[in-house]
Design a protein around this nucleic acid. Sequence first.
DNA 1: GAAATGTGCTATAACGTTTCAAAGTATGTG
DNA 2: CACATACTTTGAAACGTTATAGCACATTTC
Lengths: 389, 389
Amino acid sequence: MADTPVSIREVAALAGVSLGTVSNVLNRPEVVAEPTRTRVQAAIKQLGFIRNESARQLRAGRSRTIGLVVLDVANPFFTDVARGVEDEASEAGLAVILCNSDDQKAKESRYLEVLEEHRVQGILITPVSGADKRLASVQRRGTPVVLVDSRSPSRGQCSVSVDDVLGGDLAVSHLLEGGHEQIAFVGGPMSVRQVSDRRDGAVRALERAGRRGADLLVIETPALNVTAGQRAGAALAGLPAGTRPSAVFCANDLLALGVLQEMTTRRIPVPHGVAIVGYDDVDFAAAAAVPLSSVRQPRHQLGRAAAQLLIEEALGDGTHRHRQVVFEPDLVVRASSQGRPRRARRPRRPPAEAREPAGADEPARTSEPARAGEPAGAGDPPVASEAAS
Amino acid sequence: MADTPVSIREVAALAGVSLGTVSNVLNRPEVVAEPTRTRVQAAIKQLGFIRNESARQLRAGRSRTIGLVVLDVANPFFTDVARGVEDEASEAGLAVILCNSDDQKAKESRYLEVLEEHRVQGILITPVSGADKRLASVQRRGTPVVLVDSRSPSRGQCSVSVDDVLGGDLAVSHLLEGGHEQIAFVGGPMSVRQVSDRRDGAVRALERAGRRGADLLVIETPALNVTAGQRAGAALAGLPAGTRPSAVFCANDLLALGVLQEMTTRRIPVPHGVAIVGYDDVDFAAAAAVPLSSVRQPRHQLGRAAAQLLIEEALGDGTHRHRQVVFEPDLVVRASSQGRPRRARRPRRPPAEAREPAGADEPARTSEPARAGEPAGAGDPPVASEAAS
DNA sequence: GAAATGTGCTATAACGTTTCAAAGTATGTG
DNA sequence: CACATACTTTGAAACGTTATAGCACATTTC
């Protein structure tokens, strides 16, 4: 109702100064004399003046904003990344426009257009399908782009990602250390890079332990959800007792929860009948019927690092070089993979069929202490990085 | 590198027309003659011209954007709401700026400022603490505000919310129908409106069934997480067998999962030893060790409705009246509350101590079919609404 | 053949800021 | 007293777009 879009002009009139002075009060208060400054500030308050960001941006040529395009806002992976991005951006005085491509090329393309029209400082994106021409043209027109959770093939841009091969290696090495000999990998479709990388890591761990990679029993699933996990669990349970693996590494936690649920249903105790390791360390991993061991990705740091790279490229002094930053995941060990398999050499626990209390006790060994663990702030994260173009 | 911010002016020069014509091609292509239009479009393409949104907005006075301020982007409740908002907004050609107040007044206030500076069409917000002066001043300056998941006390604005009292009522009515006599409520702190409303609903259901509200055993928790649920579960389990409730209604699913985990640990079978109903129907509710009955909120619709109200207010013909829209939650019945209590009149199942397979079978009765179930689109949702100022 | 009616385009004035050279006004120096 | 040296403040010119009034020309109408 009281729609009075008050501008800097009216403030100037009320305070009895020129436009330029009001602008100075707003942007460089130290250059204007004390009495004038207070007078202007009073006028601003009295009129309820609010800067017009569009006008500022128009003048400046660029907005004070960065764009973040993710595949799915509802996915905790991306919400954590988004928070990391936001933290870093707000320290630099930038706002974040969060866009949801929903894994659709068309939506992604539309959002890229919107972001370019807004003259964002740069774009952080997990592309729907690899780096493509659309992104290249955005870059060519002068908007920096950083790839998130997807390695840059062309080296024409920065990227941040997590070493999924290492993640698979960590999980399976842990199971091997626990005395497991027959290990299964559950995950799919293999066309998803993350899935095949994790499997490759599992194979690598086996081979390093002097085993043949082909020993890994691979159960490929059509999707990465609980139902697919249950089916895979049923398939595993159906194997003759002698050949059934004593441990399962799942490509994500939903699958792992499905497997766990199926084992519980069939009265196969976890971890002593079957040990399970998941991937992602979702919130509920720790709250599962048997707390779930899982590989954790430094999601928040991933977001921070991506934003850092982007800001360096956009606001830096032109000395920026594109970098590929690769983070290392952590293994979080919980009850679902503790202890030795039932047929192991040194059974330290009574061979009772009953599952024992899935106590609230915390992981016996976490790889956390081995890392700095983000102590009080933004210190450079432990990463492997390589420079390029 | 090739940083050539190409403007409408250069397009005009290349096409040999005036600025105005290029603008017309962009905004009202039908008014410009065919040959000219194609010539201009070719020039646009050749130069890789991208509209400058800031300049458009400056001219238009308002941006084509709405703001959404939530308490926590990582909370699935808000991500679903956000998707609903986004769907509705993009149909109206508006972009959404998603802001995360992190439950902090200061961040909230900062974001409101940013949104006002951007001259958004309107703001959707779940305020950190009720409706306040800050919001009122935003409205006074001409930016419409709609409250999300929080009823407007003043009626000076629109609001959308879900009837938490009804939710509590549904849950406890279901348990009463199942033959449960002693029912506990687990939740807290009571200062959170949602929590106390749900408890009030539980009391209402009891009283309607001819029982005294005071019969409800209330266990107040310090937080709404799994750990608090485990503690509450332990407290319940510690009660003498005669007085221990046969059913628990939890104020959210995290608590319910905690209680469930504690019961499992103590070998108290769910649902026959203790039935459990949660609230929110989070993704993992269906995937819990015993699939969890839960009260589901129409989150996506909540977002859509909020955006609808805002758009009506911002873009409408001035006939807008503020409305308070209240949605009704659904009860989703799963295994955790199926069947009758162990000491019930007609035990239909063997009184075996062992928990039976938490089969993958779906809920025997869901309240879903009773509702339209969102068939193919945006039809007006089933709501109770009341008009005001 | 003049007047009326279109059609297609152009020139120009905003929109609200920031920036920057230049103009004022004190204050101190020779 | 003239003059340099700060320190403040001003005025005008952008930034890229859209809206509007009006111009030039072609077509129809009397």
